[in-house]
Design a protein around this nucleic acid. Sequence first.
DNA 1: GATATTATAGAGTCAATAAGTCTGCTATGA
DNA 2: TCATAGCAGACTTATTGACTCTATAATATC
Lengths: 131, 131
Amino acid sequence: MKFSKATNYALHTTLALVSASSVKPIGVQQLAKSQDVSTTYLSKILTKLAKAGIIESASGAQGGYRLTRNKDEITFLDIIHAIEGTSSMFECDFVHGDECLIQAEMKNAEQKMLQYLKETKIVDIAHKQST
Amino acid sequence: MKFSKATNYALHTTLALVSASSVKPIGVQQLAKSQDVSTTYLSKILTKLAKAGIIESASGAQGGYRLTRNKDEITFLDIIHAIEGTSSMFECDFVHGDECLIQAEMKNAEQKMLQYLKETKIVDIAHKQST
DNA sequence: GATATTATAGAGTCAATAAGTCTGCTATGA
DNA sequence: TCATAGCAGACTTATTGACTCTATAATATC
């Protein structure tokens, strides 16, 4: 029951992009160096973020990644869903008569967490950090 | 980022014990049969619950498991902690200057879930089910 | 248009964890 | 004392996470 390291890389990289907020894209090399991770591996993670529409990529020289949307629209949940997927943390596959009440409560609990993550924006962190 | 199947077994078994609420212990055989799981495997899980003080075991003939405490003191969180451990779902091991703000938010989010699980009691489910 | 630079895709590797089995031991009620 | 129960630890197998490697595709610059 743990978040993957990939999620951590994704969060930190997005924070870096939000903080930079430059028009010209930033390459993986640069992004990878600051987190001490290989470029090939970080690439894979960033491709997921791109597919989720959070960032966009530019090939070729001077290429790299940049945000697609408005900075303050990006939430923790967006990134987590992009990396970990959207399936529920708890699935009861037993054969009960009707819906599993235990599962229902577990999903309620998960919802509490997701709600918080949905309300929390990456840009808030960026502001705090620059203080 | 998923809860283990063992947690699901633990929750269902505890619910069964709460619902039964008999003075005499119930054997693993019986508990395992209703969930279609091997007795040896369920044993391991129940031993964890016993070590956490949620249930207690009685060896020998007519032995088995029974609740230790008052039924309505047992929360979802108790069981989850007993099986999954108590370590945090998110750990940032990067070397930042100070505490990682991303980690701080992730822990806040997790807290929301844990709080709900702490407030939710197994006995509530038992009541709903018997309706 | 050639070339260097950058992202993308997909297969492959290695390690850790989850999920479950096996076997022998210990406790205890009848 | 013996049949019935739980306990412990080593073991196996499957799944997932955390990467690497290599080849390909896109593009800015010369």
